[in-house]
Design a protein around this nucleic acid. Structure first.
Lengths: 333, 333
DNA sequence: GTGAAAGCGCTAACAC
DNA sequence: GTGTTAGCGCTTTCAC
């Protein structure tokens, strides 16, 4: 690979002048510029970004760290982030942590993060305290449905509100036995499952309805397949239900399959609402009514916070709860 | 951030010794090692990967470049690549090109690619000739369903064979009017659509069936929504069909919705087969019969070829056509 | 407008 | 075992 030096020699100027031309800095005579550009072309010079980063201290690259790209919510988030970043001229790379604590710890080794100008970190496995230990002078914005260290910027969905909206809508449409697929009976759960279960509860309370803990179907790790099986087992076990709030669309897809395995019709026998508004959800049959987490807003807000940190602002950390909205489709009456 | 020099000063040794300790090289006395490690801990030293890359000429990182992470096929491919790479100790980052020629050209600027030890490049928009122009001394393996420059390693799916399998199965199950959703009537199309259409044709020919070009429904850019609309329009326009081979699962999902919009039952009235075996396809209702492109094999093979290039082998480029298999589920009789 | 010098943080090569 | 030297390719600073 030719270097600045090679180009400088070929065009009879100093490396500094080549650098100035290559970076489009002013104060270079037209003649010199042309000569240098010709040499660049001739030699096929390409800037070495590693050297530039080392010297300039900036890489022009932002990282988005997600558990897995095959989890559609995160795949869609990554695409939204790339779209939102395109106009800024910055470059985005996606890191996958593998959805495990160890994966997150290794993908997020300080050393690696140093290579980026800023990091959007979607936390799943790490504990609050482990996140807090992350080095403080790296521009970092957290994404994730759990409590995070106060000291760090954090963008979180309206989990409770979304679940409440979804459940209230089921109640409004006449459902009275509303299961929560992927919920928890543990009132101390502070994570995504806990918050969405809290919304489900809140909607019942607001409507003056009793909450039946038998309607709480625990979370499933292999989301679609396991959720399907759980619902099938619950119905086979005699559980009466006329509505399901699924904590994610993936769970909802499993739930829909499970209900149909039992010969139940959607929405006539059981109405279903999900959470995530995946692209595929609109094209299921019937279309899935779901909570739209406004991935576009999440990403825009996260990037705003990140830009602020990257520009060196020392302001107090912000913890933003993003608005959500219900998208009504065919799985509700 | 503390540097090697800081650690060296703090522990009273030279930077080289610190480097040796940090990199676990032999020939360091136990006492020194302990002293250095203590200083590393105390100062919170983290290696600067940018400097290491510049000096060592390797970054330990491989890039996978895909059009968009929200396209499930590519999201799943990215996750498979991360899984396959984990044992190797190398690091994977995902770049999104935005599915456009310009996006690919910019994401794939030589400069950026230089930063990686190797690149898996999933080509969509670029022309054969543009790919050929990529610098030749970068370890690079191409993925993608179109012809590629002979000089470069390339892993491609069994597109024709998969489409043939899918269509032959529909014929075997009694379908006689089999549309191809997302196909083309252009016999010169060398890309994914052309190859999969060729397989659809071949199955008809092999079975002694006539091919009716009215059954070719052209590709849809907004895959699910537009495919749904196309099928709906075709059926409304009086097209008779009892089977659909969709060129991708995303198209198949749109097709299923479109058929149902028309009051047709799947598989009783119309059987459907897709291509991609997306995770969601197994949990549609009924489950989608589809061609499994063996993403695991694709990724393993691509990494094998890449490792070979990275180890400096100068062998002839390989063009591997990966085997596919049919996964039979509920959308066929 | 252009250039010389210094150095970002690290490691390869070799001397001791 | 440990230290010294040199330099990866670039940009910052400042002199001319």
């Amino acid at each position: 690979m030719p270097t600045l030096k090679d180009v400088a020699r070929a065009s009879g100027v100093s490396v500094m002048t080549v650098s100035n031309v290559v970076n489009g800095r002013p104060r270079v005579s037209e003649a010199t510029r042309r000569r240098v550009l010709a040499a660049v072309d001739e030699l096929g010079y390409q800037v070495n970004l590693t050297a530039r980063s080392l010297r300039a201290g900036r890489s022009g690259t932002i990282a988005l760290s997600i558990p897995r790209a095959d989890h559609p919510y995160f795949g869609e988030l990554a695409a939204a982030a790339a779209d939102a970043m395109r106009p800024s001229g910055r470059h985005l790379v996606v890191e996958q942590t593998g959805a495990s604590r160890e994966g997150e710890l290794s993908a997020l080794s300080q050393a690696r993060l140093q290579m980026y100008d800023g990091v959007l970190l979607s936390v799943v496995g790490l504990q609050d305290a482990e996140v807090a230990r992350l080095q403080s002078d790296l521009p970092l914005v957290l994404l994730g449905e759990k409590p995070m260290p106060t000291r760090l910027d954090h963008v979180i969905l309206g989990n409770v509100e979304g679940a409440r909206l979804a459940t209230a809508y089921l109640i409004e449409r006449g459902a009275r036995r509303i299961a929560i697929a992927g919920g928890t009976v543990d009132p101390t759960d502070q994570g995504m499952v806990g918050m969405r279960t809290a919304g489900w509860r809140a909607a019942h309370v607001a409507a003056g309805l009793a909450v039946d803990d038998r309607l709480v179907l625990p979370p499933a790790h292999f989301e679609m397949a396991e959720s399907r099986e759980r619902v099938r087992a619950a119905v086979a076990g005699g559980l009466q239900l006329d509505g399901v709030f699924a904590v994610t669309d993936q769970v909802a897809i499993g739930v829909m399959a499970g209900l149909r395995d039992c010969g139940l019709r959607i929405p006539e026998d059981v109405q279903v609402v999900g959470f995530d508004d995946l692209a595929v959800s609109a094209h299921l049959w019937p279309g899935l009514t779901t909570v739209d987490p406004r991935k576009d807003l999440v990403v825009t807000e996260a990037l705003r916070l990140l830009e602020r940190r990257m520009s060196g602002v020392e302001a107090e950390a912000e913890h933003q709860v993003m608005p959500v909205r219900l998208k009504v489709r065919g799985t509700t009456l």
